[in-house]
Write a protein that binds this DNA or RNA. Structure first.
Lengths: 205, 205
DNA sequence: CATATTTTTGACCAATTGGTTAAACCATTT
DNA sequence: AAATGGTTTAACCAATTGGTCAAAAATATG
């Protein structure tokens, strides 16, 4: 593969990423992607045989990228509380740089859940729980966080950072009405989210 | 408007609701809707001139319905804690009966934020805050919930109930891997969500 | 019953879509 | 410089799409 090959293939991939994340699989036109990449439409088919293959390439990279952002928090040797703070700072910052990813992924996964299977198959969920127990077992015990509660807690933690981006269109409209800036809201959310979760977990009321 | 009119128009509307919520505006075909309604495709255009008008009719009804589900909690004369419990029981139950609404709305709003404007314009957000202050002012003060914190808290409360439905495709796949039933998870979530939020709000740590 | 009006249908259309193909282009090698 | 190989393009195609239209069927009106 020559240098110009890689350039063209990358140009196509980047253009496809932009168009697909903005318009979705159904809404995106091959011609749009070709225009965005500044090339002929036939070249798309030369490098990626069909629209579906091109989409899958984009989808898989984005999905893998998204999930990988959850991982580092399990590696760092921090207290449970610091892990949560670390997660929200990093994760919301990542989403600020890629604000359209949540809506794109959620929509396409609901449209075709099958696509996610191969990515999830590569994840070892139990391992994450084991790592967490090894590093923060005492805290988990102290706060009475059992294995059964993990799905509720984890989905709640994810919801708090991801949902504002998925529902950005709604929130932005609502906020504008009461004079609140969405970007300011996001900045504040990094700390608010961590405080909120930590208080909920630690509280024994 | 005769009786059979209403039947046909309603049949079309219901069919359109089903097809649009499942496939989205771009993915839905007028022929699909006609088939679903058991009528000729031309009839769609007879009652709703264009695909876009038909979609708008469906979208507006769903959006209004969705937002209206947030309102009752402000009317009931309950303590803040009971309001939160009431909300999650009612809201998650509503979403269990209409599981595809969140993903549909979030996607279409992000695809075309303009569509939401006219619905949001009809909402008086300040009124909700005033009602809340009038009914639960003392509790808000006690828990140090100020006007500036409201957006963070409200979006968090919504995220916790809506996100699992928006991300259903992801969660269901993940849960299956560790042997958890999604419907059971949802049932448990009504109480978990309320407990979680109440603990976070009440905690003074 | 005959007429007028509304509802429903099937045939049709122009535009768009993803995809194909053969030829042109370009860099390398011989 | 001629041949070779991969790369890029323009022209084209079959299928699908939202939408139209005139006629038929059903219903209401006199």
């Amino acid at each position: 593969m020559s240098d110009s090959d890689k350039q063209t293939e990358e140009k196509i991939f980047d253009a496809a990423t932009e168009v697909f994340t903005e318009k979705g699989l159904d809404g995106a036109r091959m011609q749009d992607i070709a225009d965005q990449a500044g090339i002929n439409k036939s070249l798309l088919h030369y490098y990626y045989r069909t629209k579906d293959r091109l989409f899958n390439a984009v989808f898989e990279k984005i999905a893998a990228n998204m999930f990988s952002k959850f991982a580092p928090v399990f590696d760092e040797n921090l207290s449970l509380e610091d892990k949560i703070r670390f997660f929200y700072r990093e994760h919301i910052s990542f989403l600020q740089r890629n604000p359209r990813l949540p809506a794109f992924l959620l929509n396409e996964i609901n449209r075709n859940p099958e696509r996610l299977r191969k990515i999830i198959a590569t994840l070892d969920i139990e391992k994450f729980w084991d790592m967490l127990c090894a590093q923060n077992g005492k805290e988990l015990e102290e706060y009475n966080i059992t294995r059964e509660k993990i799905p509720q807690i984890m989905t709640t933690i994810a919801a708090i950072s991801v949902f504002p981006f998925a529902a950005r269109g709604i929130f932005e409209s609502l906020f504008k009405k009461i004079g609140i800036d969405f970007d300011t809201y996001l900045e504040e959310r990094k700390e608010f989210a961590a405080d909120f979760v930590i208080k909920a977990i630690k509280s024994k009321v």
